[in-house]
């Protein structure tokens, strides 16, 4: 069952076309990632789907409810942690939770029970009476996550949940995300951290300049775009770059003082290695070091975004 659906969303801010026809749908229980560089339109897309911004064109649905026709009902099914946001710094951790709970009209006992569980889970229970302004950045993020979860929402929207956090805080949030998924929740997150997307997401859509340019599971994308490998070789003597001309026609070659780097398709590996050995024998060089690597998800991402 599809729980989040975006159909042909467009949004411009004056001359800036921030989002240009974004469509996707997310089935229940999936972690869906919107991955893209700065300014790609991730936040704008999330804001349109959560009903904060009205799209110039297109529609968005949450649990089948048109977000712009009935934003209150649509939002009662979701929890959101916006990219840049704060709890009320002059309210205590606990009062922040209580306030949000009341906005979902949850009975007080339920708020208390869930609030206690969430704060314990996120390591904030000891700080429940502290004002939010005394919390560190990582703690504030966790409090915001707790606030988004207080209504036990079906769907969670997280705009860059871990950016700017240290590894420990980031891990804590990631483990909460996977835990939520295990309980059948649907999560839509944005990130420009490729490893995070590869690690967490069941499916990612790569967005650039307001358009989705690739979509699939991280493995899908690796297979589809990751057919390239990188061969790095280091010789004992520096070589004249003209020697490499015979590679240049077919492959992407770069060379610095230490490394000659050749990017080729997997099935060309044998041929390329032959050529390298050829050069080695011809010039009487010795190979000092050799690396052969499949491209990382990051390389693939860069490649897709550049439109290669």
């Amino acid at each position: 069952m599809t729980v989040v659906e975006a159909i042909g969303l467009y949004k411009s801010f004056g001359p800036v076309e921030a989002v240009r026809g974004v469509s996707f749908s997310v089935p229940r229980g999936e972690i869906f990632g919107l991955l893209g560089p700065n300014g790609a339109g991730k936040t704008t897309t999330i804001r349109m789907i959560t009903g904060l911004l009205r799209p110039d064109r297109g529609r968005a649905f949450i649990m089948g409810i048109d977000v712009h026709r009935d934003p209150v009902r649509a939002r009662s099914h979701i929890g959101v942690v916006p990219e840049v946001s704060n709890p009320y710094v002059d309210l205590s951790v606990w009062d922040n939770l209580l306030l949000i709970g009341k906005l979902y009209c949850i009975p007080k006992e339920t708020i208390i029970e869930r609030g206690k569980f969430l704060l314990e889970e996120l390591g904030l229970y000891d700080r429940r009476s502290s004002k939010a302004k005394t919390l560190s950045k990582g703690m504030r993020r966790r409090l915001l996550l707790a606030m988004a979860l207080i209504s036990d929402p079906e769907i969670l929207f997280l705009d860059e949940p871990t950016s700017g956090l240290d590894v420990f805080s980031a891990r804590r949030i990631r483990s909460m995300i996977t835990e939520l998924r295990r309980n059948g929740k649907t999560i839509v997150l944005t990130t420009h951290n490729i490893d995070e997307a590869g690690m967490l997401c069941d499916r990612v859509a790569i967005i650039n300049k307001g358009k989705i340019i690739a979509e699939g599971t991280p493995d899908d994308l690796r297979i589809r775009y990751g057919k390239y490998i990188e061969i790095k070789v280091s010789f004992d003597n520096s070589i004249d770059s003209s020697v490499l001309n015979e590679f240049r026609d077919h492959y992407n070659v770069t060379c610095d003082e230490r490394w000659v780097t050749i990017i080729c398709e997997k099935n060309e590996l044998d041929e390329v290695l032959d050529k390298i050995m050829n050069i080695k024998h011809r010039l009487g060089l010795r190979i000092k070091d050799l690396h052969i690597e499949s491209q990382s998800f990051e390389d693939i991402f860069v490649r897709i975004v550049r439109g290669e």
Partner: peptide
């Protein structure tokens, strides 16, 4: 300024 507005607007309110 305090960045609480978007946080609160994302709730089921108007």
């Amino acid at each position: 300024r305090q960045k609480t507005l978007e946080m609160i607007l994302a709730r089921p309110i108007t």
